[in-house]
């Protein structure tokens, strides 16, 4: 369960202060699927990064499964991130020099999963997103849709419960985007908590709940 209480985030660069979030309070149940919508620059990514422990809020409280994330040290934060959270990005965020297989294996290696178990988990994940045949190819050798499937497989293989997707279909055409959403739907059915940022109503419609953000506030 994700609980945000009055979260604010102000970016400070040199002498400019940019408020990105202005008192966000939010509760997200385990296993739910939430879409975050809003115009560009409204703070969607910032919110997602804070939920994903990639960034720290300037003020406010954040509890993840009753752990006080806002008070956690850097190493504790990293540990939470490693154990609980997976990301899916608009630009796929795959390592170009690695094969699809190796990309999916990455978080498992980081988590020190033994090699045998790694292989099993990777192949299962690739199978469930339907790109098992592409395992030995490099990301540049497959289509955008397949690359995003690879990124989803990576999230799936890591066995983390929370999947944060920042415009997962933003770089894909409508048809491929729909296919990717169907795969995410599968993950949701497996019981994963999915929070996804999008500004596409059709995509947001997949979620159980839609949160709209404007100028760093929920409306």
């Amino acid at each position: 369960m994700i609980q945000l209480k009055d979260i604010t985030k102000v970016y400070k660069t040199k002498n400019v202060e940019t408020p990105a979030l202005n008192g966000i309070s939010l509760e997200i149940e385990d296993g739910s699927w939430v879409a975050v919508m809003g115009t560009s620059g409204s703070g969607k990514s910032t919110l997602l990064n804070i939920i994903g422990c990639m960034d720290k809020p300037t003020a406010g409280e954040y509890y993840l499964d009753d752990e006080a994330v806002h008070e956690a040290s850097d190493s504790a934060l990293h540990d939470i991130r490693k154990r609980k959270i997976s990301f899916i990005f608009q630009g796929f965020a795959l390592m170009n020099q690695y094969t699809i297989f190796e990309n999916v294996e990455l978080p498992l290696k980081i988590k020190n999963v033994p090699a045998k178990k790694r292989k099993k988990l990777v192949l299962e994940a690739l199978d469930s997103v339907g790109i098992k045949e592409q395992a030995s190819k490099k990301p540049s050798e497959v289509s955008g849709g397949q690359q995003q499937r690879c990124a989803i497989a990576r999230a799936l293989a890591s066995e983390n419960n929370i999947i944060l997707a920042d415009e997962p279909t933003g770089a894909l055409d409508a048809k491929t985007g729909k296919e990717v959403m169907e795969i995410l739907k599968g993950l949701h059915e497996m019981g994963k908590t999915i929070i996804m940022v999008t500004h596409d109503k059709n995509i947001a419609a997949y979620a159980e709940r839609i949160i709209c953000i404007e100028d760093g506030r929920i409306v």
Binding site: S75, H78, F87, F89, P107
Partner: peptide, 9 residues
């Protein structure tokens, strides 16, 4: 990418 996938600084 390494960082987003769970590795620390």
């Amino acid at each position: 990418i390494m960082y987003a996938n769970g590795s620390s600084v």
